[in-house]
Design a protein around this nucleic acid. Structure first.
Lengths: 365, 365
DNA sequence: AGCTTTACGTCGCGTCTTCTCATAATTGGA
DNA sequence: TCCAATTATGAGAAGACGCGACGTAAAGCT
């Protein structure tokens, strides 16, 4: 039970209506006052007041009126997506990926960097900062309103890396705080699989689904949970460490491949060519994935499982057998889909998480 | 992305302030206008208007003023918890348990009934209806505002039992609809473990925790998920069927006991007396429970695991070894606690779910 | 009885939204 | 070229709401 505590005077109405107008403006593109008012369920005058408010805050501006059409041409207004920016960075063991996006979430610039997996924390951070600030080179100081980093390992709610086995010197790092310092803005950090889930739900394979599970398949495993349209990171942020459950069988992925002697890419290649042995290896991988996924499915019963990560490059080759195995393990097997964004999903999820903050705090949505 | 669509005129303010006043009134007991206003963050006048509103709706009434104290005695108002009622029914394989509660959720009457596990659906329903209506005998027609039934098996969002292995004729039953018809009110149905989780979170062992997992331990297994303070039933309501995952090892509970030859109660008795063989059996049960729980913990990373169901009667005898086993299976083992409400938890969870509906729809909270 | 304290009730003000009506700016046809 | 139709704009009035202020009412205490 929470107390309300907040006083509700008439100023709240103004805020609410401005918020509604802003939502409509963002979703519908450039619109006239009449259109805005109708869509937001307000009178034209109220919409006008809201637009004046937004214009003053730099979030709206007048656009060119529509050509043609009878009657007096209406003034049109558009959302100034360029009023602010957000940054998402994926800092992985072997790769750094930075993205700059505007307030619509449209990606403006990207930087990709391969790094050595033994690179120490300080230098890795410095490279990530370079990549991120380079992306934002054209953005004025203070123009980045929020930034989020994604990384492998356990990241707690405050943005601190509490455990990381894959990146040297990473454990204990206040990653969220670091990233915020780069742009003097609020900074966040989250587990990579969680961010990937966020991205897939935002614009990817899970666009139309509010209960889904993202499976990060590869030499390391992980997962992200999206329930009721919201990310569930768990108490310590360590949801996503399913790979640790020996019963589930994700740990022996690398064993399967090692036994074969080839790396994943080669095996997939051979399997695509129809080679028997490679197909058997792929089936074994699919079985392992299905075992892990089945635990997720039986626990949270999602509508969709999205498979991303390195192994997902095999595409339907892997998904087909995975569906078959999963069907045998669950009462109501959910749909299984490939990740839409490959490598970019983590940085894109970072963009989304930063946008979430901006929408909540600065746009007052 | 959803459009707002709702117009925000000044009437909304009134609604919001009335809501805030009602919340304060319910939480704080009988209060004066000044107290209400301060707690709700409103002016005294506004609180007065809200109270007038609530009084008209039958939800508030004037109480006796406080004795003593300087100054003019203030009128005091209290929430009329007796303005409406809710019903929760647990319809299990071998037991029916009905509860009537007022709008505060205080339980007024209970009825418990043992039934044969082979009892056909129609007769089982008739008995449940008898138990429930008997509980509500003193309540005027229309005085029950919502009712919820809990049962074992998969219950979908609409309140239909989609799968039930334990109760004959249960599969396909529109349980929520049935229960609603008893009292001519909105009726709901949910899986028993989910309702138990709700109850424990409301007033039981998980009172202060918003991310928790309820484990129904017994000859049949199940679980309920409470994340961010809300129940997550999953797409088809079949989250909670973890027992189906053979890898997890919940299925062989009965095997463990069968091998011993005694039933659970006898084994616990013997173990309490210190008998070696019984202790080994309990440890084996604890191991099985921990295996199942570990899957839950690794997937959702809760703060707390609440153990209920038949085996939980063993108390710390079972929980101790379970904690030990769990610690070996998880990175960050959560706390493990016993269920506060034994058999009553399911019906009580039903009360809570019915109250949720009432608060949302009729109290406009 | 008079003082102090606390609550009550009414009045007026400011804010917000909406309705109405006069006005402005276009297009298309006479 | 001019006029009607159409659509948007702008100003003013009305209604609803919340809040602060001030006078009044009702108790206890001295």
């Amino acid at each position: 039970m929470r107390t309300s505590g907040v006083s509700h005077d008439t100023a709240l109405l103004r805020r609410l209506n401005t918020r509604a107008t802003l939502q409509v403006l963002r979703q519908g593109g450039a619109q006239t006052l009449t259109q805005l008012a109708r869509a937001a369920g307000l009178s034209r005058q109220t919409a006008e007041v809201a637009i004046a408010d937004l214009t003053e805050r730099g979030l709206a501006e007048e656009a060119a009126p529509t050509e043609g059409g009878a009657g007096r041409p209406a003034r049109r207004f558009r959302f100034r997506a360029e009023a602010g920016h957000v940054v998402g960075v994926d800092i992985g063991p072997r790769r750094i990926f930075a993205m700059l996006a505007d307030l619509n979430g449209d990606v403006l610039t990207e930087r990709r960097l391969d790094v050595d997996e033994h690179l120490p924390a300080a230098e890795r951070l410095a490279l990530a900062e370079q990549a991120a600030t380079a992306c934002a080179a054209d953005v004025s100081r203070g123009g980045v309103w929020a930034a989020t980093a994604g990384t492998s390992g356990v990241v707690d709610r405050s943005g601190r890396v509490s455990v990381s086995h894959l990146i040297p010197g990473w454990t204990g790092l206040d990653l969220g705080g670091q990233v915020g310092r780069w742009f003097d803005c609020p900074g966040f950090a989250a587990n990579d699989a969680n961010l990937a889930a966020l991205a897939e739900h935002w614009r990817g394979s899970a666009r139309h689904v509010d209960d889904m599970v993202y499976v990060l398949s590869g030499y390391r495993a992980g997962h992200g949970l999206m329930l009721d349209g919201r990310l569930r990171a768990g108490r310590t942020g360590s949801a996503g460490e399913l790979g640790r459950l020996p019963l589930v069988g994700w740990e022996d992925m690398s064993v399967v491949l090692a036994r074969d002697g080839r790396d994943a890419e080669e095996v997939f290649e051979a399997a695509r060519a129809g080679e028997e042995r490679a197909l058997a290896v792929v089936d074994r991988l699919a079985y392992g994935l299905a075992r892990g996924a089945s635990a997720l499915v039986l626990v949270v019963d999602p509508e969709l499982v999205v498979v991303g990560g390195g192994f997902s490059r095999a595409g339907e080759l892997l998904l087909g057998p995975m569906r078959t195995h999963l069907a045998g393990m669950c009462l109501n097997p959910p749909e299984v889909a490939l990740s839409t964004f490959g490598e970019e999903s983590i940085a894109l999820g970072g963009v989304r998480m930063a946008l979430d903050h901006v929408e909540r705090e600065r746009l007052d949505l």
